[in-house]
Design a protein around this nucleic acid. Structure first.
Length: 476
DNA sequence: TTTTGAGTTGTTCGA
DNA sequence: GTCGAACAACTCAAA
């Protein structure tokens, strides 16, 4: 349809919705051809890992932001919905494009899509690294194997001396013909009926600008105290950059270098280690494509998980009668995010005290987290369940009362997200079932009425979990 | 090939 | 209240 001379280089945006430090974008520009930016919303290729509700909300706003910044360069973002392979092949054929540039994902379904796209176009698909610090294959043990323990993996990353310096956003972008585009508004990514997104709107600013503002605010105000503050859910001691990182509105490489312009110290080191945990999960998924579905440790296939739908629903809705768990689950529902310390507590509670399959928690997080990320979600749920990369899972059963008293000593976090306990005496805020009748009465709490009775006895749940874990060991 | 040290995030119990 | 030990062995990664 066009002459070859005008044929564009296609830039296929994936989990890298930014213009700065974008290797695929730069490579497309370097062809000297006009650039055709495309995003495809694909709900079929991912199978069960199609975008969840909270992620769809985020995506809508992130694409709005990306469209705006591309517009500043005189470029339009072509939006298409459907099967990635068919759409990219169709656009490539229409545009007579010989080169398609995209970010390299570690998600198994995305890798399958990439192979199919490469096979169905006449030109070349260039997969560039846009989401991880290093290419997964550049991190190997001395014997050439894949890492499965975090610490040696992190050491190997540090031995590489850090990722390359991020590149600036292009100042101009030459564009040409653009194909038909969907209207973002027609994709229905925002809540249709119940407006559950108001808490999300209050909490987040999706997009590259919002990501950079969050990062700079954290580095200026949060990083120094990060080592201590990050474990206290009532404060804002964490970076809250996870959704920005997941959608690639800021790259891990950019963050790495921003952090290293700050004074060295314990907090800086710990934050870098958190970035490397993200890198580790991506690496583990790269080498274990079954990670989201099947336990890494095969003996866990024999685990006798319980089937208890009412308990699962109570957990999802934050009605377990265990305050720190309920606060976390309600924070998740309201804001699309949960503090990391509390994620461990609620996950341990589901998998150990309730003995429900970790995949159920994984699926719920997938649907409700704005930072839902296949590698991190699967890797961390497996870690909590003990079937993943953790070497010492057996006796690691979080006691939600102790965790609450230790990390939410004043109960502020619980009070905020479980308002029916707002007036509870601090001594009993994490275990209201232990409170004397007059303390409950003074707080206006009626257990089993205004706030649930605990759905599981913590000591009994712990004992049951230990027995189940001992059982799969003896069977294997 | 064998050996050696280590492994994100915890809890409980008894002194 | 605080501290150290026990929890249970196993696998990983490097030497």
């Amino acid at each position: 349809m066009t002459t070859t001379a005008a044929a564009p280089a296609i830039l296929w945006f994936r989990d890298d919705l930014r213009l700065t430090d974008h290797a695929a974008l730069l490579a497309a520009i370097d062809t000297g051809r006009p650039v055709l930016p495309v995003f495809v919303l694909d709900d079929t290729s991912p199978g069960p890992w199609a975008l969840g509700g909270a992620s769809r909300w985020w995506l809508h706003h992130s694409l709005t932001a990306l469209r705006h910044s591309l517009g500043g360069l005189g470029a339009e973002l072509t939006l298409r919905r459907g099967d990635s392979v068919a759409i990219i092949a169709e656009i490539a054929a229409q545009a007579a494009a010989t080169d398609i540039f995209t970010g390299g994902s570690v998600d198994p379904w995305a890798r399958r899509v990439d192979r199919a796209v490469a096979a169905s176009i006449s030109g070349k698909l260039h997969r560039m690294r846009t989401t991880t610090l290093f290419h997964p294959d550049s991190l190997r043990t001395k014997s050439g194997g894949a890492f499965s323990v975090y610490t040696p993996f992190a050491d190997a990353c540090l031995a590489l001396g850090g990722p390359c310096v991020p590149s600036p956003a292009p100042a101009t972008l030459r564009t040409a013909w653009a194909p038909r585009s969907d209207r973002l508004e027609d994709w229905g990514l925002l809540p249709a009926k119940a407006d559950w997104a108001s808490g999300l709107r209050d909490t987040w600013t999706p997009g590259e600008t919002g990501a950079m503002e969050r990062a700079e605010a954290f580095l200026s105000h949060g990083l120094a105290g990060y080592a201590d503050a990050r474990d206290r859910p009532a404060g804002d001691g964490t970076s809250m950059l996870s959704p920005h990182l997941h959608f690639g509105e800021i790259s891990a490489t950019q963050l790495w270098h921003m952090v290293h312009r700050r004074p060295p110290g314990e907090s800086r080191k710990i934050f870098i280690r958190e970035l490397l945990w993200r890198e580790f999960c991506a690496n583990v998924l790269w080498h274990n494509p079954g990670l989201p579905e099947a336990p890494l440790k095969p003996e866990f296939a024999k685990m006798l998980w319980r089937d208890d739908r009412p308990a699962l629903i109570a957990w999802q809705k934050g009605q377990t009668g265990t305050p720190i768990v309920d606060a976390g689950m309600r924070q998740l529902w309201r804001t699309g995010w949960m503090h990391n310390r509390v994620r461990m507590i609620v996950a341990s509670f589901l998998v150990k005290h309730l003995m429900l399959p970790w995949q159920h928690g994984e699926a719920w997080f997938w649907d409700t987290l704005v930072d839902a990320d296949l590698a991190n979600n699967a890797g961390n749920w497996q870690w909590v369940a003990g079937c993943g990369t953790d070497a010492a899972p057996f006796f690691r059963i979080f006691n939600p009362v102790l965790q609450g008293r230790k990390f939410d000593a004043g109960g502020d976090y619980v009070r905020h997200f479980v308002p029916e306990l707002a007036r509870m005496d601090t001594r009993y805020i994490h275990a209201p079932w232990e409170a004397p009748a007059d303390v409950l009465a003074n707080a206006g709490v009626i257990l089993g009425d205004t706030y649930p009775n605990p759905i599981v006895d913590l000591a009994a749940g712990r004992a049951r979990a230990l027995a189940a874990y001992a059982q799969i060991r003896s069977v294997s």
